[in-house]
């Protein structure tokens, strides 16, 4: 079955540029499987187009990459896309994965109450390390890689047909494998500095709503 997948990929600062580039991997996988990708890249990651795309296409999976806080997630130039007590009902009848700081805390819960099948996100800051020398080539950044590979495992797993609960568990396992690899001997100081932030992201990743939901 061909799914409709909406992805937001703002590109207005280093963080969003990294998230957007790394999200391409999940998009490529979905495209190969024949899914329909609604890619809101750069200036298209605005509220008007976000809402319009959802209303017209009813995507089964909404993959949000961007900044956020407890009550909202944002797009290009930090324009608010979805905000609790305002328009979270736009997310109803979808599975959502938000790579955004803190939105799991309030927006995620509100979204599920408003009809979203499942919301996977984070209840605190999403933190990652990056290599200064790779800032213009995020996909080549091996320092950022463990963070974004683990995070994106949610999207990859959902696209492969797993449930929200399975996708969450898969991402958690990915984080843990990377952590345990860094705890082993023979790892450089440069590599092991990622430990505390990988653990943080893993700890605060949450899956709210129906764990059996699929896209």
């Amino acid at each position: 079955m061909n799914h409709r997948i909406l992805v937001t990929r703002p590109n207005s600062d280093r963080t969003t540029r990294y998230l957007s580039e790394w999200a391409k991997k999940a998009i490529e996988l979905a495209s190969k499987k024949g899914d329909i990708i609604l890619d809101l890249y750069k200036n298209k990651a605005n509220r008007k187009q976000f809402e319009s795309m959802i209303r017209r296409n009813t995507p089964s999976f909404i993959f949000i990459n961007g900044h956020g806080n407890e009550v909202c997630v944002t797009g290009q130039n930090e324009e608010v896309l979805v905000e609790a007590d305002h328009n979270e009902n736009i997310l109803s009848k979808s599975v959502i994965y938000a790579v955004s700081c803190s939105s799991g805390k309030t927006l995620g819960k509100n979204s599920v109450k408003a009809g979203a099948y499942s919301y996977i996100g984070y209840e605190d800051k999403f933190i990652f390390l990056f290599d200064e020398k790779k800032r213009t080539r995020p996909l080549e950044d091996k320092v950022a890689g463990p963070f974004l590979e683990s995070s994106n495992q949610v999207a990859v797993s959902l696209i492969k047909g797993h449930t929200a609960g399975e996708a969450f568990a898969s991402s958690q396992k990915c984080f843990m494998r990377k952590i345990q690899k860094l705890l082993s001997s023979g790892v450089s100081v440069r590599e092991s500095s990622a430990l505390r932030y990988l653990l943080w992201n893993k700890q605060f990743q949450v899956c709210i709503g129906n764990p059996s939901a699929t896209i």
Partner: peptide
């Protein structure tokens, strides 16, 4: 202080830090 030079930390919308 054990963080390597040349590695930055992204803390969401709070920004990037050395």
């Amino acid at each position: 202080d054990t963080l390597p030079d040349g590695v930055g930390v992204s803390v969401g919308s709070d920004g990037d830090y050395s």
